[in-house]
């Protein structure tokens, strides 16, 4: 009986492999699989848990939003995925490859698979992002080297992946600069000669020049003017769609997230409290925190903004696990 069951699953698996293209959209390819990620930092009074069990998947070609207020752990998630922090426990997988693993799991791996353990430990200790993952940072002024011109700045990313041919680097930089909408004349200019929006474009050029499959944009526009920020968001959106790149868009501005993201995860105190397709999330918020968060957005309408009933989140609902309330809509709840 048991044997029969196993065979059946194998059959289904083969069927999916063969018919994947035809079955199409329901069976999307998982690019990034984050599983039960935990991270604690040493604080002045003991350890502070920044993440307490975060799991989600990012599909390929998807723009995935993470929202939450300051201290919710959204930036920590981004930094673990990009290799800047190592997790206390849990795992991050890119495709079939494990790219980050918690200490306990690493210890187990040391015994069971020593070669794989050595490789992974080397990767994680290097503090470098996986070659397929690149980041765009919040403050373009702080994240660019003031003493490098655009050619060096953007070319350095190619250099780091092992390209040594100067002509090839120059060509790559030129193309990346054109892709982000900057004129070729800016190659030999320095960061201080650019406006905030242009600097963020340079940061994006540096990220996309290696053709990553996943871009992590951590509050890419919160340091910019609203109108300039909108242009940068549109640029990231267009690049993602043209190149079939996945994006993790970390932000606190819900209206932006709603607009550009396919799916959105809402984080609070180191947990994902709700995860759904963005329209679904905004139409039917379910977790009390999400409800409070959405009701706090001032509507651009004088009648309703002055009358809106604002829900206050009074804590609670942070235990249990993510349960599916409707197709693809996960809510943190008991039972």
């Amino acid at each position: 009986m048991a044997k029969y069951k196993r065979n059946k699953t194998i059959t289904i698996y083969i069927y999916r492999e063969l018919w994947g293209d035809i079955v199409g959209e329901n069976e999307r390819e998982v690019l990034l699989d984050v599983s039960d990620l935990r991270k604690s930092f040493k604080g002045s009074s003991g350890r502070v848990e920044a993440l307490s069990g975060v799991s989600f998947k990012v599909f390929s070609r998807e723009i995935f939003g993470i929202v939450g207020e300051s201290g919710s752990g959204k930036t920590t998630v981004g930094r673990i995925i990009s290799g800047l922090y190592s997790p206390s426990s849990g795992s991050v997988r890119l495709g079939n490859e494990v790219i980050a693993l918690g200490e306990d799991e690493l210890g187990k791996m040391k015994r069971s698979a020593p070669t794989e353990y050595k490789r992974l430990r080397r990767v994680m200790r290097s503090g470098r992002a996986h070659p397929e993952i690149r980041m765009v940072f919040q403050d373009p002024t702080a994240s660019l080297n003031p003493r490098m011109n655009v050619l060096e700045q953007v070319g350095e990313a190619l250099l780091a992946t092992g390209v040594r041919d100067k002509a090839e680097i120059g060509e790559g930089v030129r193309r990346a600069i054109a892709d982000v909408g900057l004129p070729p004349s800016c190659l030999y200019r320095y960061p201080h000669e650019f406006s905030g929006g242009q600097r963020q474009r340079i940061g994006i050029a540096r990220a996309i020049i290696t053709k990553p499959r996943l871009l992590i944009a951590d509050e890419p526009v919160s340091a910019l003017d609203v109108s300039v920020g909108a242009q940068v968001i549109n640029l990231i959106y267009d690049l993602a769609r043209e190149r079939g790149m996945s994006v993790i868009f970390i932000a606190h501005d819900l209206s932006l997230v709603r607009h550009v993201c396919d799916r959105v995860a809402v984080m609070y105190k180191g947990r994902i409290v709700e995860l759904a397709e963005s329209e679904e999330l905004f139409r039917h918020p379910t977790h009390p925190y999400t409800v409070a968060l959405l009701s706090a957005i001032p509507e651009p309408d004088p009648f309703f903004a002055k009358r809106a009933v604002r829900r206050v989140y009074e804590g609670g609902g942070l235990e249990g696990e993510l349960c599916e309330v409707s197709s693809g809509h996960l809510v943190l709840m008991d039972g």
């Binding site: 109108s227 909108a230 242009q231 968001i233 549109n234 959106y237 267009d238 769609r241 209206s255 932006l256 709603r258 607009h259 550009v260 963005s278 329209e279 905004f282 651009p300």
Partner: peptide, 16 residues
Amino acid sequence: LLSSVPSGSGGRLRII
């Protein structure tokens, strides 16, 4: 200004 307020979903943002 009023048209560029992001509302609903729709991919690209409307910009001036």
